[in-house]
Amino acid sequence: MILPIYAYGQPVLKKVAEPIAADYPDLAQFIADMWETMEEANGVGLAAPQVGRSIRLFVVDSGPMQDEGKEGEGIRQVFINAEIIEEAGADCSYAEGCLSIPDITGDVVRPEQVTIEYEDEHFVTHTSTFTGMNARVVQHEYDHIEGILFTEHLKPLKKRLVKRKLEKIRRGDIELKYRMKFVR
């Protein structure tokens, strides 16, 4: 089932999400719904807060973000109860966007490598290191479960330039490309 994506301004997007246990109700269906919702919106990642649940879960499919011919280097996986252990490498800038903040992009500086501990959909614990675009997508989605939006990483001038657009999104005064839920 395609879920509505919560738009900028929804309080759930600013909360630090709660860990979950293996007995979380209807988890397998919720994960399937998240994949379907992300794909319908042409996203490469989606965090549970973006569909209204303040839980530490996100999905990533970074294949479409890889350079042409290197799509197979992307990752497609579920992250539950994730915690970043280490960020390393040079800081890299890249124009990010977000399904909760449509039609706005901005350069975000992030470390080129991240090591993260998480559980998969079977609650098996993993510690993985990601680099390049995989690291960027994981860090972006991780920010969501920490209550951080990519716009908070923008330089002050860019923040001022997008302020009016953000307010339009908050009000729902935008052309919809996928199902969304706004503050009304």
Score class of each variant (00 low, 15 high):
residue 178 Y to K: 15
residue 121 E to D: 13
residue 106 G to W: 02
residue 85 I to H: 10
residue 132 G to Q: 02
residue 94 Y to C: 00
residue 132 G to K: 02
residue 55 I to P: 06
residue 70 K to M: 06
residue 87 E to H: 12
residue 135 A to W: 01
residue 42 N to D: 15
residue 67 D to K: 13
residue 75 I to Y: 09
residue 51 V to C: 08
residue 175 E to D: 09
residue 19 P to M: 01
residue 31 I to R: 02
residue 142 Y to T: 13
residue 118 Y to A: 07
residue 145 I to W: 03
residue 20 I to N: 10
residue 74 G to Y: 01
residue 183 V to S: 14
residue 178 Y to T: 12
residue 154 L to W: 06
residue 8 Y to K: 07
residue 51 V to L: 12
residue 164 R to A: 09
residue 76 R to V: 07
residue 143 D to H: 08
residue 130 F to T: 02
residue 39 E to Q: 04
residue 114 V to P: 04
residue 142 Y to V: 13
residue 90 A to D: 11
residue 47 A to Q: 04
residue 175 E to C: 12
residue 85 I to G: 06
residue 31 I to W: 01
residue 160 R to W: 04
residue 10 Q to T: 00
residue 146 E to H: 01
residue 47 A to N: 07
residue 108 V to L: 03
residue 93 S to Y: 06
residue 2 I to F: 13
residue 6 Y to F: 15
residue 29 Q to H: 01
residue 54 S to L: 00
residue 130 F to P: 00
residue 164 R to I: 02
residue 111 P to E: 12
residue 178 Y to L: 15
residue 147 G to F: 00
residue 64 P to C: 15
residue 32 A to V: 06
residue 132 G to C: 03
residue 33 D to K: 07
residue 51 V to E: 04
residue 70 K to A: 10
residue 121 E to H: 11
residue 140 H to A: 11
residue 16 V to P: 04
residue 38 M to N: 12
residue 79 F to D: 01
residue 173 D to Y: 09
residue 122 H to A: 10
residue 80 I to Y: 04
residue 130 F to D: 00
residue 84 I to Y: 04
residue 30 F to W: 08
residue 143 D to A: 07
residue 42 N to M: 14
residue 156 P to S: 06
